[in-house]
Deep mutational scan, measured.
Amino acid sequence: SKICLVCGDEASGCHYGVVTCGSCKVFFKRAVEGQHNYLCAGRNDCIIDKIRRKNCPACRLQKCLQAGMNLGARKS
C-alpha cells in the first residue's frame, strides 16, 4: 500500500496532486481555504509523522506544500 508523503500514514489516494492520507488531505484543504496563519513554536523543523502530525500545523502545512500539494490540482 502507498504511504502519505506528508505524515507517512497509509495513503488513501492522490489528493491535490500528491499521494496523501485522508487526514492530511482534509487538513490541507482547511488550512488553505481558511487562510490560517499558523506559526511554529519551534524552528520550523518539527517532525511530522502519523503520531505527531497534529502537534504543529505550521510545519505540517509547510510539508504539504513542499510535497507539491496544490488546491487547484486536478484529480488524477
Rank of each mutant, 00 (worst) to 15 (best):
N70L: 07
C40Y: 01
A11Q: 11
T20R: 01
C4Q: 01
S12F: 04
R74L: 09
K25R: 09
Q66H: 10
E33L: 06
C64D: 01
K54C: 04
C46E: 00
S23I: 02
V19S: 15
G68E: 05
Y16D: 11
A67I: 08
G42V: 13
C46W: 00
K75S: 15
R43Y: 08
E33N: 07
I47D: 08
S23M: 07
V26G: 12
C59F: 01
K63N: 09
L5T: 11
E10Q: 15
V19L: 09
K63F: 04
H36K: 05
N44G: 13
L39R: 12
A31H: 02
N55C: 11
S76W: 15
S23Y: 10
G13A: 06
K75L: 09
A41G: 14
F28V: 03
G13K: 14
A67R: 09
A67S: 09
K25W: 07
G22T: 06
Y16F: 09
G8V: 02
N37D: 12
F28R: 00
C46V: 01
D9G: 09
V18P: 04
G68T: 02
N55R: 12
K75G: 11
I3D: 09
L5R: 07
I48F: 06
G34D: 13
P57M: 14
V19I: 07
N55P: 05
Q62E: 09
Q62N: 15
D45M: 09
I3G: 04
A58K: 10
N44F: 08
D49Y: 04
A67T: 14
R52H: 09
I48Y: 04
R30W: 03
N55F: 07
F27N: 00
G13P: 04
G22D: 13
L65W: 11
Q66F: 12
C24T: 00
S1T: 07
G72V: 14
C59R: 01
Q62W: 09
C21S: 01
C59T: 01
M69Q: 03
S1K: 05
Y38N: 07
R53D: 11
I47K: 14
H36A: 14
N37S: 10
G34W: 04
G68Q: 04
R74C: 13
I3T: 04
F28P: 00
C21Q: 02
F28L: 03
V6N: 01
L65N: 09
P57W: 11
G17K: 09
C40K: 01
C21D: 00
C40G: 00
C7V: 00
G72Y: 08
G22C: 04
A41C: 12
R52M: 05
C14Y: 08
K2R: 07
A67D: 01
N44D: 15
G72E: 11
A58V: 02
G68P: 02
V32D: 11
N55K: 14
Q62A: 12
R52V: 06
Q62S: 10
V6E: 00
M69H: 02
Q66N: 05
D49S: 10
C4S: 01
C46A: 01
A11P: 13
I3Y: 11
D45E: 14
R74S: 13
R74T: 15
N55W: 07
Q66E: 15
I47E: 11
L39P: 08
G72N: 09
D45A: 08
S1P: 05
D9V: 13
G22S: 09
L5P: 08
R74K: 14
V32A: 14
K2V: 05
G8M: 09
D49Q: 04
K63H: 06
K25N: 15
Y16G: 09
K54L: 06
D9I: 04
A41E: 15
P57S: 10
A58Q: 15
K75N: 07
Y38T: 10
A41K: 05
G34A: 06
C46T: 00
K63P: 01
C14I: 11
N70K: 15
G8A: 15
C24F: 00
V6G: 01
E10F: 05
D9F: 04
S76M: 07
K54M: 12
G13L: 08
R43K: 14
E10S: 11
A41V: 09
C59I: 00
L61E: 03
C59Q: 00
K54H: 06
K25A: 08
K25D: 07
H15A: 09
T20K: 01
C24M: 00
R52Q: 14
A11Y: 03
A41R: 12
L39Q: 13
E33I: 05
L39N: 13
N37V: 14
F27R: 00
Q62F: 04
F27H: 02
G13I: 05
R43I: 11
Y38C: 04
P57Q: 07
C40A: 01
L5Q: 15
K25M: 12
M69W: 02
I3V: 04
S1I: 11
Q62I: 06
E10M: 04
D9W: 03
R30Y: 05
C24H: 01
V6M: 02
E10K: 14
S23K: 13
C7A: 00
A67G: 08
I51L: 14
C59E: 00
F27I: 02
L61H: 03
D45T: 06
F27Y: 02
C24N: 02
E10H: 15
N37E: 15
V32T: 15
V18I: 15
S76I: 04
A31L: 02
A67F: 05
G72M: 10
N70A: 14
C46N: 00
G42S: 14
L65H: 15
C59P: 02
L61A: 03
K54Q: 08
G42F: 10
C21K: 00
S23E: 13
L5E: 08
N44M: 08
N70I: 12
E10V: 10
G22H: 06
K75Y: 09
I47N: 12
D9C: 05
D49T: 13
A31P: 02
G22E: 12
N44V: 03
V19K: 13
K25E: 12
C14A: 11
K75P: 14
Q66C: 11
S12Y: 15
I48G: 11
F27G: 01
D49K: 04
F28S: 02
E10R: 06
K25P: 09
C46K: 01
I47R: 14
L5H: 03
V26E: 12
A67H: 11
P57F: 12
S23P: 14
K2W: 03
F27C: 01
G68V: 02
G42D: 15
S12C: 05
G13Q: 15
C21G: 00
K63Y: 05
C56R: 02
F28I: 03
V18M: 03
G42Y: 09
N37H: 10
K63M: 08
N55S: 09
G72K: 10
D49C: 02
E10I: 04
R43V: 11
A41N: 08
I3K: 04
G68W: 02
I3P: 02
D45V: 08
C24G: 00
N55Q: 14
L39D: 15
I47S: 13
Q35N: 09
H15W: 14
L5W: 06
V6A: 10
K63D: 03
V32I: 14
L65Y: 13
Y16K: 08
G13E: 10
P57Y: 08
G22I: 03
S12E: 15
C46G: 02
V18K: 06
C14E: 12
K75I: 03
K75Q: 15
R43C: 05
L5Y: 08
C4K: 00
Q66T: 09
K63E: 04
C46Y: 01
A41L: 06
A58E: 05
K2A: 08
R53C: 04
